[in-house]
Simulated assay, not measured.
Amino acid sequence: MDIMVSLPLQAFIRDLRKGSSTSIRDCVQGLEDLGYWGVNVVDHILQSDTDAAEHHAEADWNWRFPEYASTMGYLAAITQRLRIGVRVLVVPYRKPIQVAHAFATIDSLSGGRAVVGVGPGYDVEEFRRLSVPRNKRGKLTDEYLDVMQALWAADGPIDFEGETIQFKGAQLQVGPVQRPGPPLWIGGNSQAALARAVRVGDAWTPMLYGYTFRSPGDGRHVLREELPDMMDWANKQRAAAGLPALECIPGSGVPWNITDRPAHPGRRPEEIQQFSAIGTVDEILEEYQLFYQAGCRRFSIRLAGADTDDFLRQADIFANQIMPFISK
């Protein structure tokens, strides 16, 4: 079972204050020792009231997001096997040629372990402060992804003529090890996100968690019962275009809190439509088994933890008491 774990941001902010990377190193190397498939960073550039509010009920809500490329390079250097990903990069925030080169470099230095999760973004204030037109984020995302994929796959200089970007004779200094490029996971819960995944993605990675805080950037909430029909539609489109089947790799939202006492007594399976992010081993396992039955074969998760030892304790529980039994 392939599980990608989000970088433990609680550990990062503590290290940031101490000027150390010890907690992150220990957490990530511990994940590798436990047999996890990958680790991913999250992408935001500026602090936001929206982000704080979305995590207001969490003990470590005051998260900080490290710069994606330098962090991925560090993670690649301290691991041997883990896939190194971002989930998800806000594509419109940066010029695509530089982004393509950054990922190609990370993929090369890691021996072909990069995973590129992308999305158009949502945070109204972050778009405004970065002077990026939020109302054009879909078009920017589509064209920038076309540029990135074209540069990764190219064996020589290429030209590109789009509405938002044009260039002639461009070739990256360093190409990716994975050809025609690193796996592209398309984030977002909307039909537009799924259509984008159909067109250019290797996987669709929606967030299947019901945030209770509603921000101006919130999209729709996808339910478990919707997934089979959505993926059936997507793969009919893929087959008609001569493309391989699209994979659904859902994210579980906020960090899991593995408890000793039941968090959902009396809950019926049909009531489990999104991940709850809290529960006993049996309750969490039931959620993942139901999503597996809905067609999901890989997952992206976040784990809680008051410190490195607590994080790795929960990672050990998930790795040994949940992960091996999801497909049973």
Rank of each mutant, 00 (worst) to 15 (best):
Ile272Met: 07
Gln98Arg: 11
Met1Trp: 07
Gly219Gln: 14
Ser300Phe: 10
Arg179Gln: 15
Gly217Glu: 01
Tyr68Ser: 15
Pro216Ser: 08
Val115Arg: 08
Ala263Pro: 09
Gly35Glu: 06
Phe160Gln: 02
Leu290Phe: 06
His56Pro: 00
Gln321Ile: 00
Asp142Glu: 13
Gln321Met: 03
His221Leu: 15
Met207Trp: 12
Asp51Arg: 13
Gly138Tyr: 03
Tyr209Leu: 05
Cys248Tyr: 02
Ser70Thr: 15
Gln80Gly: 15
Pro120Leu: 04
Ser300Cys: 08
Ala76Gly: 10
Asp107Ala: 05
Ala277Val: 04
Phe12Cys: 03
Gly253Arg: 04
Ala304Lys: 14
Glu247Val: 12
His221Phe: 03
Ile322Asp: 04
Lys139Val: 14
Lys95Cys: 07
Arg298Tyr: 08
Glu126Tyr: 07
Ser190Cys: 06
Leu7Lys: 01
Asn189Gln: 03
Phe291Met: 03
Asp282Trp: 00
Pro66Ala: 05
Lys95Thr: 08
Met323Ser: 11
Asp260Tyr: 02
Val90Glu: 15
Leu46Tyr: 04
Val39Ile: 14
Trp204Glu: 06
Thr164Arg: 09
Gly188His: 08
His264Met: 13
Tyr36Gln: 05
Ile13Val: 15
Gly169Phe: 09
Arg220Trp: 00
Arg267Met: 14
Gly305Tyr: 01
Leu303Trp: 13
Tyr74Cys: 09
Arg129Val: 07
Arg298Phe: 05
Ile13Ala: 01
His264Asp: 12
Tyr209Asp: 09
Arg214Cys: 05
Leu223Arg: 00
Lys136Pro: 04
Met231Ala: 10
Arg128Met: 03
Gln10His: 10
Gly169His: 14
Val86Arg: 00
Leu109Pro: 07
Ala263Trp: 10
Ala234Glu: 04
Pro133Asn: 06
Arg297Pro: 10
Arg298Trp: 06
Gln274Tyr: 03
Gly217Leu: 08
Leu75Gly: 08
Gln237Ile: 08
Asp232Ser: 14
Phe127Val: 05
Asp218Trp: 02
Thr71Asp: 04
Arg94Asn: 04
Ser21Gln: 13
Leu16Asp: 04
Pro265Asn: 11
Glu270Ile: 10
Ala203Cys: 12
